[in-house]
């Protein structure tokens, strides 16, 4: 391995390490349930829309968001902003919930997920016919 290759490999390793060195945080959530479905509220301060990934696969709902703090010019290594936080948490959706109809909104670091119940699980009013 030439010297140049070595330097490139080293730089790559450093970059990979940096990308990997994050603090994994389990976001706190509140879950509200009503007749029509559930609302999940998660605190993920510092995550922008672009850095947030929400997936539903096999009735598993996963939230994954990265925090990137801006670093001022001239900041040294070890500056507060260098360390990033990553919010990760997974939930299993029960059968009553319709994973196809999830609505997500993000405002001021609060993620709101609205997951409706499947039609057949929603309360129905039964009409009584007169005989």
């Amino acid at each position: 391995m030439s010297h140049q290759q070595e330097v490139v490999a080293k730089e790559k390793a450093v970059a990979e390490k940096r990308a990997d060195s994050y603090q994994s945080v389990r976001p706190r959530v509140d879950i509200h349930e009503d007749k029509e479905g559930i609302t999940l509220l998660a605190d993920i301060p510092g995550v922008s829309r672009e850095a947030l990934d929400i997936q539903i696969d096999n009735e598993i709902l996963s939230i994954d968001g990265r925090v990137e703090l801006p670093v001022p010019n001239g900041a040294k290594e070890g500056y507060a902003g260098n360390q990033t936080t990553r919010y990760q948490r997974s939930f299993s959706l029960s059968k009553e919930l319709d994973g196809e109809q999830v609505e997500a909104t993000l405002k001021d670091g609060v993620l709101a997920l609205r997951i409706p119940k499947r039609q057949e699980f929603k309360p129905r009013k039964i009409e009584i016919r007169t005989a």
């Binding site: 706190r28 959530v29 509140d30 879950i31 509200h32 349930e33 009503d34 559930i38 609302t39 509220l41 605190d43």
Partner: peptide, 8 residues
């Protein structure tokens, strides 16, 4: 709504 989980 009923609060089923409260952590925040």
């Amino acid at each position: 709504a009923k609060l089923v989980k409260k952590e925040r």
